[in-house]
Design a protein around this nucleic acid. Structure first.
Lengths: 202, 202, 202, 202
DNA sequence: GATGAATGAGCATTCATTCAT
DNA sequence: CATGAATGAATGCTCATTCAT
């Protein structure tokens, strides 16, 4: 039953294995439906080991969440900041979102389906920082475009809704295997729609 | 401790009270996080009583879900069928959705946030029938419009995504108190966007 | 595994059985060292049943404690109030204490050895009421004697210490099987000592 | 995270730090309620370090206990042996006890409140030796006094009870902050009482 | 219909202890 | 001597469900 190999390299592996197991299970069954025991088995770790690395189930979930949301947000920001052109920027967001969902279905299911989960109650400063940076970066880009006269000024909630709403809905269908259109088709169509809606019409 | 009044009228009240308590709790805390004991207390009913009316927690949740989704779907269909005009029909869907969410926040949270809940595993025939009717009615209306040349032919998933995605996203923001635009503003804007996207451009 | 007989009479029995099992185990092993599982087995009850009757282990311990301390205090007060004579009163206290310990060794071990236990943290009003009544009754009797000139006025802590200290210490020895004097001998000797100490010397 | 200084002098410090931390925690929360992890934190030592110095939690507790009880017994014996006079000897015991409790509240709480703790099961020869010496010294002194005709012959348990019972009870009140008399007042009063009780009356 | 005692599997978590480095 | 990752049995407690009354 005992694991012999507990070198430093491997203990890093151990922590990672726990995160991966947790991600997989949370994604598949949800936070509450996943037991720590499930995670232990999936990570081939003992109860004590998991609790050695994460103080609680909630904290583990938060760690997983933050790792995922961080990478997602960084990806979006990187993609967006690179674009000067308004339409290209919007396309970058949509494209990154749908591609990320396609390539990281576990993360996507976890991040977007379990959004309102209780484990976020633990007011995690790390998360707050992430979200603040993200909001500022995104807001800054849009403000710049509005200032340039390429995008019509709007309440920010409507902008989010128009860009991310369809992305989320398509992702949901895609992840549940109910979509019929390809991700590429979706990218083009959703971009076109968002652009029609947001652009300053000429 | 005992409830005296067990006439037929009152037991109907009892069943309703259970459903209402369940809805309120499921909406607030989620299915798994809500215990039957919570529901008993909130409904002022005994364990046995709740199990007398509903075979299991899942079945109770399913009953609540079906009651809600049924009324929602009926509302959408009624609103849609009444409209011959394509744009008016799209507006009717969006308007009904957002208005329903505003007027029935408990239902909305339960129906739309907890969508992927495990209690739907019980392949409920009632639900399947509801969904089938809904899909046919909706599909019929759109097909008719496409046939008339008012709406461009599209994969159905993209149509759903364009119309409902923004609605869902706005609802999420609205229900979590983070929206800044009014429901009426949202209705107008989301309708305009969907119409721009779906209409046969002239 | 299932218990068939769950009449009302028997469920009362069940709760009693739990209390008795808890008392026995707490007395023998102490609060922390006793597990709920131990209690379940000893009471021939299921986990759920125990928790149906008592909200927590602490609450169970508090219930046991209060039942015991209540009867003890009532016994002391009854014995004391009956006596007008000062020496007879002091003898009544000492005699009741040592006799009670002899006749209720489980209770005694639980009440007097585990005194500073954590389960008393739950600021139990019942306990506060008990203690208040007890303190008032005892205090009243002594005040009366002082007023009569039979007992010399003293700080109340010294009075307690002189009367109960030796009782407690003898009980400790007796319960651990290390005493050599009989309870009757102890009663006489401790009474004589306390009387010498407290009486107004003539 | 790592402690650099591991000279012999400092490791002695380390061992002491562990004992002090353990004493403080055992005294405050009790043996079972204190975890090795608590002790590690309080002593600023790693798990391994604590286990390097003490084989187990019980052994650590025993070490702490023996250190304390040893010093207490030595103190009593020193004070007693110095006195030829019977009353002065009894006063010395009581005085030392109460003064020691006042000056070493942590030790006192640990030694006297947690007396019946499980960690004493480990039949510690060191403890047995201590106790034997103590009993012999004390017994010898009293026998000598009885032989001299200053103290009336009594069962030894009653002697202990009369001298230590009130001390213990006063200590309990004192340590819990409920006493009202000063330690000096208590010394005088308890000495007078014990003397009245034990002396050969003239 | 209603009640609530009883069930027992399951869960999150703790904790003393070991051991490779 | 010190470190801290790892272990896994044990614990207090929850909860959906059953059933006699």
């Amino acid at each position: 039953m005992k694991r012999q190999n507990s070198t430093h390299a491997l203990s890093h592996t151990r922590k990672l294995a726990i995160i991966e197991a947790a991600l997989s299970l949370f994604s598949k069954k949800g936070f509450t439906e996943t037991s720590m025991s499930d995670i232990c088995q999936a990570a081939d770790a003992s109860t004590g080991s998991v609790y050695h690395h994460f103080k609680s189930k909630e904290q583990l979930a938060a760690a997983v969440y933050i790792e995922g949301i961080g990478e997602y947000q960084r990806g979006i920001m990187d993609a967006l900041v690179r674009e000067e052109d308004a339409r290209a920027g919007i396309r970058a967001i949509i494209s990154f979102h749908l591609t990320w969902v396609k390539e990281h279905p576990l993360w996507a299911r976890f991040l977007f389906h379990q959004r309102h989960a209780s484990f976020m109650d633990s007011t995690d400063d790390a998360l707050n920082t992430l979200n603040k940076t993200f909001a500022e970066t995104m807001g800054g880009w849009f403000k710049k475009q509005v200032h340039r006269g390429t995008i019509r000024p709007r309440n920010w909630d409507l902008v989010i809704v128009i860009i991310l709403g369809p992305c989320q809905e398509f992702s949901r269908l895609y992840l549940s295997g109910k979509s019929v259109s390809s991700v590429d088709e979706a990218i083009e169509f959703l971009t076109e729609t968002a652009w029609l809606s947001l652009a300053v019409s000429t």
